Amino acid sequence: MSEGAAAALRVTLIDDHPVFRIGMAALLDSLEGITVVGQVPGFAAARELFAEGHETDVVLMDIDLGDGSGVDLTRDLLRDRPDLRVLVVTMHEDDDAVVAAVRAGARGYLVKSSPPDAVERAVRAVAAGEMILSPAVAERAMAYVLGGQRAARVPFPQLTAREREVLDLLAHGLDNTAIARRLTLSPKTVRNTVATVLAKLSLRDRSAAIVRARAEGLGGGDPAASGPSDS
Rank of each mutant, 00 (worst) to 15 (best):
V194C: 07
R124M: 10
L77P: 03
A127M: 07
E139L: 12
N176F: 09
A100C: 07
A104I: 07
P116D: 10
A152V: 15
R81G: 10
S114G: 07
D168C: 06
D168S: 12
R85K: 12
A161I: 10
D76S: 11
N192R: 15
T160H: 01
V86G: 07
E139Q: 11
A151T: 12
T160S: 10
R121H: 15
V190I: 09
V86R: 01
T196H: 13
S114P: 03
R103P: 06
N176H: 11
A195C: 05
S134V: 08
V123W: 03
V88Q: 04
G173P: 11
N176E: 14
T177A: 14
E120A: 14
R107M: 12
A171H: 08
T193N: 13
V119N: 02
S186G: 13
V88M: 05
R107S: 08
M91A: 15
A100Y: 07
L159H: 03
E163H: 03
T184S: 14
Y144E: 13
Q158W: 06
A136P: 04
S186R: 12
L73C: 08
L73T: 07
P115H: 10
V190G: 06
L185T: 09
V145N: 05
K112Y: 09
G129N: 03
P135I: 08
V154S: 00
L77E: 03
V89D: 11
S134D: 06
P155L: 02
H92L: 09
S113W: 05
D96Y: 00
